[in-house]
């Protein structure tokens, strides 16, 4: 399985798609996580993401290893943005490709769920009323 991991200020869906394309794969699943303009009814002006980069990449690699053990996925890309991000910006992209679609959905869901639970990346929320959480 080919793996692309990236934690950078700018990420794009296209680079993930370009990476997972393969003539052998008939199914491609892409999850995109975007910055919302609202958290529980409060207007959000921006998010700030930081990471413990070395460990975050290591944990992302473990997720990729878990995916490779569970499913016959051919390629996976996991990209996470850091720094200031505004409503509508892309925060995270997980993309997988496989011969057929079924396992691609399963693997993509597993990868984003596990990324959110384990990978050391943190967001700070800036609200329109001036508060920061």
């Amino acid at each position: 399985m080919d793996v692309l991991l990236k934690i950078e200020p700018e990420i794009t869906i296209q680079e993930a798609l370009d990476f997972i394309h393969s003539p052998a794969c008939g199914g491609e699943v892409v999850f995109t996580g975007k910055v919302r303009n609202d958290t529980k009814g409060r207007a959000v002006t921006k998010l700030f993401y930081e990471s413990y980069r070395e460990m975050a990449i290591s944990e992302m690699q473990k997720i990729a290893d878990d995916v490779a053990m569970q499913w016959d996925i051919k390629k996976i890309a996991m990209l996470h943005a850091i720094g200031d991000k505004y409503p509508g910006d892309i925060a995270v992209v997980v993309a997988v490709s496989s011969i057929h679609r079924g396992i691609a959905f399963d693997a993509c869901e597993y990868a984003i769920d596990t990324l959110k639970a384990r990978v050391p990346i943190w967001k700070k929320e800036f609200f329109a009323d001036g508060t920061i959480i």
Partner: peptide, 10 residues
Amino acid sequence: IAVIPPVSGG
């Protein structure tokens, strides 16, 4: 050694 508060990526 790193202190890891609840993660909140994604």
